[in-house]
Amino acid sequence: MSAALDLITRVRGVRGAMLVSAEDGLVVAEQLMEGIKGSAVAALAASLAGRLRRAMEASGTGRSVFWHLQAEQGALLVVPSGEESGNLLVVAVAEPDVNIGLVRLELLRAAEAGT
C-alpha cells in the first residue's frame, strides 16, 4: 500500500496521500508532507464522504467512485475503496492547481492495489 501512496505523492502538487478507515475516520496508512495533520484529514474526509454518500444515494446517482473538494488554497481528492467500495478511502491532499485527472488515476490505481 505504501508503494501506491508513494505513486500518488509523486504527482506534482500532491502534498500527501492516505488510506483512511471510512467508518472510523482513522488513519490506516499515510505519506504526508510537513504541516499536514493526518488525523484531521482522515476524520474530516471520512465525515464528508459519509454525508456525500447519503446525498448521492438520495439523488439516485449511487455510491461515489471519486470525489473532489476544490478550495481556494488546495484540494481534497478521494476514491472509496475496499469491500463494497466503502470501507476505506484513498485520500490525496493537493495544491489548488494540481492535475486532477492524474491524481484521480493514481487514486484509482491505489484503490485497486489496496483491495
Binding site: 473538494l69 481556494e72 488546495g74
Partner: peptide, 26 residues
C-alpha cells in the same frame, strides 16, 4: 461539512465539490 473540512485543513474557502457516482455525476 465541506466548509468545515476546507477551513480546518487550511485549504481556505471551498468553491466546489464534484463527485462521480455509479449512475451519475454531481
Amino acid at each position: 461539512e465541506a466548509a468545515r473540512t476546507a477551513k480546518l485543513l487550511g485549504l481556505g474557502a471551498w468553491n466546489g465539490l464534484s463527485a462521480e457516482g455509479q449512475h451519475g455525476n454531481v
